[in-house]
Structures are given as C-alpha cells and as structure tokens.
Amino acid sequence: MIEVLYFAWLRERIGLPREQVETEAPTVAALVQELSARDDSYALAFADLTGLRVAVDQELADFDAPLAGAREVAFFPPMTGG
C-alpha cells in the first residue's frame, strides 16, 4: 500500500489530494501506467511526464526510481517557490 499525493493542477485534474493505492509497481513509471489505466482523468493528468515532477518519500526522484519499500509518492508540476 502506497500513499499517493497530488499537488497544484494535478490535484485539481485528478480530483483528490491523496489516496491509498494497492500496487506492486516496481517503479514510479509503472505506478503512473497503472494509474493512467484507471480512467481518463488520470490518463490526461499523466499524459506528459516531462511536465511533471515526482517525490518518493519526500525526496525528489526520477520516474524510473524504484518503489521497493516506498511509503509515499507525490506527483506535481515543476515547483514555483520563492
């Protein structure tokens, strides 16, 4: 079970801020594929991964990062702090 979080326009497009996902996905990319297969809102949100960033257990990661042992995965657009 992984806690999946969404921020900014991704949260709005998917329609929820977080959810628990039962998954055996070995990588972030595989998790994205699983989510995208659920329905159009996910597929649309994840259509262009170059415009998205991901954090695994609160650390920035790549989409090919492994998920073994991960508890939390967050997806969001490029950050705009400052």
Binding site: F76, T80, G82
Partner: peptide
Amino acid sequence: YLKSRAPFWKK
C-alpha cells in the same frame, strides 16, 4: 534553489 526545488506552487 528555493524557486525550483522547494515544493511550493502558486495560483
């Protein structure tokens, strides 16, 4: 670094 590496988003 805060601009693009700290998890903030502006609307």
